[in-house]
């Protein structure tokens, strides 16, 4: 039994007494962390949910810190499900059936309508999830990252353009990025894409609950609050390769004014958790929205950790 399995097993036992409820029957809850398809499959140009400006996105590494799952009920505020462990997870190397981060037995068979979890900055107390390499775990903890993404943008006729009069563009058919971010954020009031908030536990059966990590939000043209009514664009990242070496660094993103790469006719930053004055700020603001629920559901209450 690895470290995280052992830990949540103990948590499960510890929580069982407080989870038992009103005598109306009980069931179980299994909490998985799931990756949106955009993480293993990347993003392609075109289509309703593709990249509008022609870039293809491929992720080579996508590491995230997730945990502190909690659920409670508006009709019984004293009852709670809590699994405070934090896990460092390789989203490109998840177990085939998904990564279980918590299980609860003897849970009142009713709706648990107040659900949340965290994507915190890593520290030494974080657990190394199954599938994560020792080196990546050490990097995440040493950097205090909540998220690390590495990948490529490709476009056959791609360009990287420096704003100015006139604008200076150079051929850029492939760009690499590797970004570690300290963007710890909590996500609450999670709800599935349709239906009531939270999840329902059936009597004598198991409810599967899936905090879902999305991989496309920094390509959004706005900071979505609910349904992802937006476009996806990647040109801004290409334009931030200031030294034209094919590597877009966080330092470069920090040197580019948001006003230079986000035309106001296309982009909207209302609802961002942090002030957005540079391209790096935009990346971080969107990184603070990655926590979703049951696939395409949302967790609209976000707070900086």
């Amino acid at each position: 039994m690895n470290k995280w399995t052992c830990t949540f097993g103990l948590v499960s036992l510890a929580l069982a007494p407080i989870a038992c409820g009103d005598g109306a029957g009980t069931g179980s809850v299994q909490v998985f962390v799931e990756a949106e398809d955009t993480i293993p499959e990347g993003l392609s140009p075109g289509g309703d949910e593709g990249i509008a400006d022609g870039w293809t996105v491929t992720y080579d590494r996508f590491l995230v810190v997730t945990g502190n799952f909690r659920a409670s009920r508006s009709d019984a505020p004293d009852e709670a499900l809590e699994a405070p462990e934090i896990h460092v997870i390789d989203m490109l190397n998840l177990p085939a059936g998904g990564l279980v981060i918590a299980e609860f037995d003897g849970v009142a068979a009713t709706r648990w309508d107040r659900v949340g979890y965290d994507i915190p900055n890593a520290d030494a107390s974080a657990l190394q999830a199954e599938g994560l390499s020792d080196a990546d775990y050490a990097m995440m903890v040493a950097g205090g990252y909540s998220l690390y993404v590495e990948g490529r943008l490709t476009k056959a006729d791609g360009e990287s353009c420096l704003r100015g009069d006139p604008m200076e563009c150079a051929t850029a058919t492939e760009l690499h990025f590797a970004w570690g971010l300290q963007a710890g954020t909590s996500f609450d009031l999670c709800a599935p894409e349709s239906g009531d908030a939270g999840f329902a536990v059936p009597t004598g059966a198991t409810a599967q609950v899936k905090p879902t990590i999305h991989g496309d939000h920094w390509f959004f043209t706005n900071v979505t609050q609910g349904a992802e009514i937006t476009e996806r664009r990647a040109q801004w990242i290409a334009d931030c390769d200031l030294d034209r070496d094919g590597e877009v660094t966080l330092d470069e993103l920090g040197m580019v004014s948001a006003a230079e790469v986000f035309p106001a006719s296309i982009y909207n930053i209302s609802g961002a958790l942090i002030p957005v004055t540079t391209a790096r700020d935009y990346l971080e603001a969107q990184a603070r929205t990655l926590g979703d629920f049951q696939g395409e559901g949302e967790c609209p209450e976000r707070r900086i950790l």
């Binding site: 704003r163 004014s257 948001a258 006003a259 230079e260 986000f262 035309p263 106001a264 006719s265 982009y267 909207n268 930053i269 209302s270 961002a272 002030p275 957005v276």
Partner: peptide
């Protein structure tokens, strides 16, 4: 003028600093 970097800065600021 609309489309200029200064204009973008103002418009983005009006959305980011409501």
């Amino acid at each position: 003028a609309e489309g200029s970097t200064a204009y973008n800065a103002l418009a983005l600021a009006m959305t980011g600093a409501p």
